[in-house]
Nucleic acid binder design. Structure first.
Ligand SMILES: [Mn+2]
Ligand SMILES: [Mn+2]
Ligand SMILES: [Mn+2]
Ligand SMILES: [Mn+2]
Lengths: 227, 227
DNA sequence: ACTATTTTTTAGACTTATCTAAATTACGGG
DNA sequence: CCCGTAATTTAGATAAGTCTAAAAAATAGT
């Protein structure tokens, strides 16, 4: 890392992916995201991250001081949220309009999110009916960059006999989503806690008034619900 | 250019753009596309082209022998046509569904054409009603890579009093399309040749039975028509 | 057939993004 | 406070794609 082209206003695919990762990690670690955390999220090495954060800092997208971790600047936050907005809008399009299943849209959206055109985002948003949530229940940022997080309680927080509605998933991996689908544990489904096994914290639940089925603690912890 | 990763089956954005350019130029120059012609189309330097064609040849996408010009292999043709198909399908989507004007979709399609997903192309094609032509009248290759070129005669080929319908444009530049739009000279419009000025080959034509308007030879040569 | 010009290729350098290995810095436990 | 370990940064290398300048090959004109 010798020199840097600060004059460019546009960010590369890679830069956008770093910003998105930092933005996501900031929610867990608001005081500063560590180099290692970013490397983990980006599936790259810490040394590569160090190079990149230097560049992002030069472009005034993040605050970075050696060994201190990084935080997004307002400019960086805007850029990150814009990518998230595009990602989630495209996921809605793929599921609602093209008929994709919710477990196979993430990878494609990962590419579509980098298409550059203000006009396109505005028109797509309107075309889709200004949706508030993506197919996994994640909130879609508005055009000003505001996000309203509604996911607070997990299915694992419920007690026996409590009732709720599934509103989101924490893990969006294909394997997890397919597993949920098999049990008809999809967004909008109602759940009632039938029993909690003390030994392994697994739950027996009734999905949409069906017969009780058992789910592991891992599943319960990755499902967001609304009471 | 020292070494090359032949193992990758996927082509990079840049490689795809080169293939697309070579494919387009092959129609004018079927015996072999010159380095300079590619450099012109790609807005790059001849030396960069030489490097790239070596790589594409290693990947068996083109036939290349020094100083001989290049031709696409069947594998290369398939790859090029696949990109063209995606480009044109996305243009249809942008105009028909999102309400873009035909003069502002090319740049966005230039990005969307590189999104990798077989499934996406199939579903998009179906969603759009398996369209045969893009917003500029260019034929959309089918899923097997077949293209039926229908553009053969230009408006400039017509004689006085002959009648035809506009079916395509040769130049898809924003400025040309906007110029056409102002005269209501859009796809599907009928034209009748009122007069041909011998001096500069400019034409006076009636568009959709309207009053005669004058167009330059340059415009007439860039409009495809069907009699 | 022999130049003169154009076209194409090569050589060497630069940028972005990545890696491995080595050097620094930070931090927690005694 | 010191020391060992973990986290982070640096140094140096690689790969893709680009460029300029120079060399080599092809082509054209006489
Ligand atoms: Mn996603
Ligand atoms: Mn991405
Ligand atoms: Mn186009
Ligand atoms: Mn392109």
């Amino acid at each position: 890392m010798y020199f840097c082209n600060v004059k460019t206003d546009r960010n590369s695919f890679t830069e956008e992916n770093y910003l998105k990762a930092i933005h996501k990690l900031s929610r867990i670690n608001p005081k500063g995201v560590s180099t290692n955390a970013i490397a983990g999220a980006m599936e790259t090495k810490a040394s590569s991250v160090t190079d990149m954060v230097k560049k992002l800092a030069l472009k005034m997208l993040i605050n970075y001081k050696k060994y201190q971790g990084v935080t997004l600047t307002e400019k960086g936050r805007k850029a990150a949220v814009s990518v998230v907005r595009k990602h989630r809008l495209w996921e809605v399009f793929l599921v609602d309009n093209l008929g994709f299943k919710w477990d196979s849209v993430h990878e494609i959206a990962e590419q579509l999110e980098h298409v550059q055109s203000e006009e396109l985002v505005i028109r797509l948003d309107r075309y889709l009916g200004i949706p508030q949530y993506d197919p996994h229940g994640d909130p879609i940022p508005d055009s000003d960059g505001n996000i309203t997080h509604h996911k607070d309680t997990c299915l694992s927080d419920l007690k026996v006999n409590q009732v709720a509605v599934v509103v989101g998933v924490k893990d969006s991996s294909s394997s997890f989503l397919q597993h949920l689908e098999k049990m008809k544990l999809v967004l909008g489904a109602s759940v009632k806690v039938d029993e909690i096994v003390d030994f392994d914290k697994s739950m027996s639940i009734c999905i949409s008034d069906g017969l009780p089925v058992s789910i592991s603690e891992a599943v319960a912890k990755n499902l967001y619900i609304k009471r």
